[in-house]
Amino acid sequence: MRYLVSVIDDGAGRATSDEATAIDAFNDRLQADGHWVFAGGLGSTENATTIDNREGRGLVTDGPFVETKEWLAGFWIIEAADLDEVLALATEGSKACNRKVEVRPFL
């Protein structure tokens, strides 16, 4: 089963070099143990562009879809047998990136 592990940033900014090292080590382990599907860090919401082409409106707006105090800073897509397995991995991931993470299953 696949799970999205979202990394939540509440103002800490980019990862420090210590955090980056810990994230790399965690990623290596995910790959070695067969849990890795994909992962990535995201640029800041400052550089987000929002598109709304519902009903062909073609609206392009500078900025994120909603202004919040917490936003998505990156994510892992993890293959795991069940929730217990992914929660254990997410607990390590949260420690490695030094951020809160949220776990959700893919449909």
Binding site: Y3, L83, D84, P105
Partner: peptide, 14 residues
């Protein structure tokens, strides 16, 4: 069901 919470006694560590 959706998140697949397992049906078992947790591991010794947990």
């Amino acid at each position: 069901r959706a998140t697949r919470i397992p049906y078992r006694v947790p591991s010794a560590a947990d």
